[in-house]
Design a protein around this nucleic acid. Structure first.
Length: 776
DNA sequence: GGCATTTGGCTTTTT
DNA sequence: GCCAAATGCC
């Protein structure tokens, strides 16, 4: 791999923009890589190029990703290009893994010991619960989850307790939010633990408090590379920015149109502001798409063009136009699943592989209907995502045992397993230990040791606690003596943990025992127990794909980065997609993120994209009539095919059946908000009028005066902003009784255009748009 | 302390 | 309507 050669082979096959992105090594570079434009290829080739050209040693390159999967993939691809040199790339990993590495090296500087534990979300919440109950706060009124969410939010924004804006902490527990955050941080330090947020926040604090340490890393990292830059949160941005100070060579790759994690703290602004943050930055656009056919790309591009806050790219392809994406309406979600099932079977008959097929849903509750249908059909499928291996109770219990052996001060782990299996050590016994531990300022396990020597506990409890403690002593003594996998088995056995599941003799218990075996097996790859635990807190995946040809079912979020020959996109209905909550909570920004999600969904398809919406869907148990998603309207007419529903009657005509029976306001299909607005005629009424009227016209599928996807008059409407543009059309008046799908029954107490103030019987006073309620 | 019943919530998810 | 968690009872 001589540097002198005119054109190293790894540059072969790159298009001019990709090549520019690979070769522009100096200064700040932003690569705006549209969907399917070869983003990962550019990133990995760029690293190969840095190495091959001798600009830096592997250890001088910092390359960060979000997921372990992405990091692994990058490692593999780089080593394929440059050989084993990657072995020496110690700084390629997730933000959290690299943060941990830095933090362990300098733990003392931020009040931790190098062997600190990393708490996952579950531990974090249990700890917060303890703090809340110690403060005598009613956990009904002030749930630990809520505070955990707030703390995560602050950490995502890089805020330590003293930096939280005054007003923000005030909303929790009567102004005690920030104090509780501070208390939580204190507890973490006492436990020698961090949560995920700290893995970013603490390095920032470390760097700020110790400029010499920072300078050291700034010197070390000659090149910085960041994957999925649109997903970075403020803390990650600050972290990067500190490291990049002094005119570093930083290269961020991302796509603002695929930013779908705003709700967990990602700041699209980071990418939108890049050239402001790094003056003189080179911006390179990758717009040549190698994935999808022309029609799919056109549909996706046209859809995403409805977003305002974007940098703008124009994707193009040399591929044939191919099949137009289809839009199919169904009567209800059951028929939708049936239609998708039939289509897949038909594709299968024509020789398509199920592996090349995916169903991408907005919310996971949608999956069940497809699963049920596929079971009936005998169609193999796999659900991607869902509960992760290490989140399963048995795995967490086993890990807690191991943690107690390795880290006697790990109170959370000890508390988790002290009475699992049942040892007669209930709440009362645990309280004893807690009180003593707190009073003496010692870890729980040590407190337990003291208590065993007194007669504070009943003889029975005392004996079993003593036995447990003796076990831990013994296991700890074997840490160096026995191979760690063997020790792990001994621990699970002698503690009675495996015995507990064996006794249950249910299919579920068998599965759990399998998982435990799998856990022990996976330990073989690590040198010892501590090394394994270190790894497991950050990584640990369950995707054991079994090699069977099967349809993939997953959420749109987990589909990002994947691609399939055929993609089914069901549930394109207002309220579900875009999701009502995204609109309510984040208004326009929420809508744009939902639209990006739709864009991500469409661009997963190589040759076929099939969109569905159904007229009725069960939401929280209630059958509700629904309206096609505005995203359907935003697809370009010329690039989309409208299909008749496979099932019998489409919309207008005498539909009957289940809906009528299950519907609380029976026989009133024609009285639903959609119909009322349709009757009122087009743009009136604001709210969903546009979608509603259009939908019904399309519903008959006779084609309408506006064309299949003609845009109705009136501007875009975003719920949550409660646009009052309607005049006259409203048929409501004060005192009317109304029904709302979410809030139930209530009485109108005030009107303002199409905005109603309703006193709901159960939900209290709310402001709603009239199109959401119906007269009763 | 363990089991049965009631309650509440219900978008997306990584580390 | 369904599920997990929390409460209440024995």
């Amino acid at each position: 791999m001589a540097a002198g050669r005119p054109r190293p082979s790894y540059l072969d096959g790159l298009n001019p923009e990709q090549r520019q992105a690979v070769e522009a090594l100096d200064g700040a570079v932003l690569v705006l890589a549209g969907a399917g434009t070869g983003k990962t290829r550019v990133l990995t080739t760029r690293i190969a190029h840095i190495l091959a050209s001798g600009r830096a040693f592997p250890s001088q390159i910092l390359a960060v990703t979000f997921t372990n999967k992405a990091a692994r993939e990058m490692k593999e691809r780089i080593s394929a290009m440059v050989g084993e040199a990657v072995e020496g790339m110690p700084w390629l990993g997730t933000f959290h893994a690299i943060g941990t590495k830095i933090l362990r090296r300098h733990a003392e500087l931020v009040g931790l010991k190098p062997n600190f534990t990393i708490l996952d979300t579950d531990d974090q919440i249990r700890l917060i619960k303890q703090i809340l109950s110690a403060e005598n706060l009613d956990d009904k009124r002030w749930p630990a989850r809520t505070l955990a969410g707030m703390i995560d939010g602050w950490k995502n924004r890089g805020l330590t307790p003293d930096q939280v804006p005054a007003g923000e902490g005030a909303v929790f527990a009567g102004g005690r939010g920030v104090a509780l955050y501070a208390a939580f941080q204190d507890r973490l330090k006492t436990l020698n633990a961090t949560d995920f947020g700290d893995l970013l926040l603490e390095p920032i604090r470390l760097f700020r408090l110790n400029p010499d340490v920072l300078a050291d890393y700034q010197r070390r990292f000659r090149f910085l590379l960041v994957d999925e830059y649109q997903d970075t949160n403020v803390a990650q941005y600050l972290w990067l920015r500190l490291l990049a100070l002094g005119g570093k060579n930083i290269c961020c790759v991302g796509d603002d149109d695929q930013s779908i994690y705003g709700w967990r703290g990602a700041e699209v602004d980071n990418i939108l502001r890049f050239d402001h943050d790094f003056p003189g930055a080179t911006v390179i656009r990758l717009e040549r798409n190698y994935r999808s056919t022309g029609h799919i790309l056109a549909a996706a591009s046209h859809l995403i063009a409805h977003n305002e806050g974007r940098l703008g790219k124009t994707l193009f392809t040399d591929d044939e136009p191919g099949e137009k994406p289809t839009v199919t309406s169904t009567w209800d979600s059951e028929e939708e699943a049936r239609a998708v099932g039939e289509e897949i079977e038909s594709l299968q008959r024509r020789g398509h592989k199920l592996d090349d097929t995916a169903i991408l849903v907005r919310a996971s509750f949608q999956m069940r209907e497809f699963e049920e249908r596929f079971i009936t059909l005998g169609l193999p499928y796999r659900v991607i995502g869902g509960p992760r291996f290490y989140e399963r109770a048995e795995i967490r219990d086993a890990l807690a045992y191991f943690r107690c052996v390795v880290q006697p001060a790990d109170d959370l782990a000890f508390e988790r397993i002290v009475n699992v299996p049942k040892r007669g050590l209930g709440e009362a016994s645990i309280k004893q230990m807690h009180d003593h531990a707190r009073a003496a300022g010692i870890p729980l396990m040590q407190a337990a040791r003291d208590i065993v020597e007194t007669d504070a506990l009943k003889p029975k409890a005392r004996t079993s606690l003593r036995e447990l403690l003796q076990c831990f002593e013994r296991w700890r003594g074997d840490l160096d003596g026995k191979p760690h996998t063997e020790l792990a088995e001994i621990i699970l056995d002698e503690s009675g943990y495996t015995g507990m599941w064996q006794q249950e003799r249910t299919a579920e218990a068998t599965g759990r025992l399998e998982n435990l075996k799998e856990l022990v097996r996976s330990m073989e790859d690590y040198a010892n127990l501590p090394a394994f635990l270190e790894h497991v807190s950050l990584v640990m995946e369950s995707d054991r794909s079994d090699g069977v040809d099967a349809v993939s079912i997953m959420t749109l979020h987990s589909a990002k980065g994947l691609e399939f020959e055929t993609v089914f996109l069901p549930g394109w209905e207002e309220g579900l997609f875009p999701h009502q909550r995204a609109l309510d909570e984040s208004g326009r920004a929420g809508l744009e993120e939902e639209r990006r999600l739709a864009y991500v969904g469409l661009t997963r398809a190589r040759r076929r994209a099939k969109i569905y919406f159904s007229a009725n869907r069960r939401i929280h148990g209630l059958w509700s009539s629904t309206i096609p998603s505005r995203f359907v309207d935003e697809l370009p007419e010329d690039h989309v095919e409208v299909e008749e529903s496979k099932g019998k009657p489409g919309w207008g005509g005498g539909m009957v059946s289940r809906f009528d029976r299950a519907d609380p306001f029976a026989s009133s299909n024609y009285g639903t908000p959609g119909w009322q607005r349709a009757k009122a005629g087009g743009g009136q009424g604001g709210g969903f009028a546009e979608g509603g009227a259009g939908a019904l016209e399309r519903g008959r599928f006779g084609g309408s005066s506006r064309g299949a996807f003609g845009h109705a008059s009136g501007g875009k409407v975003i719920e949550g902003e409660l646009i009052a543009k309607s005049t006259g059309g409203s048929s409501f008046s004060r005192g009317d009784r109304v029904f709302h799908v979410k809030f139930g029954y209530g009485e109108i107490i005030a009107l303002d255009g199409n905005k109603l103030t309703v006193q709901f019987d159960k939900a209290g006073e709310k402001k709603v748009v009239d199109s959401f309620v119906e007269k009763v």
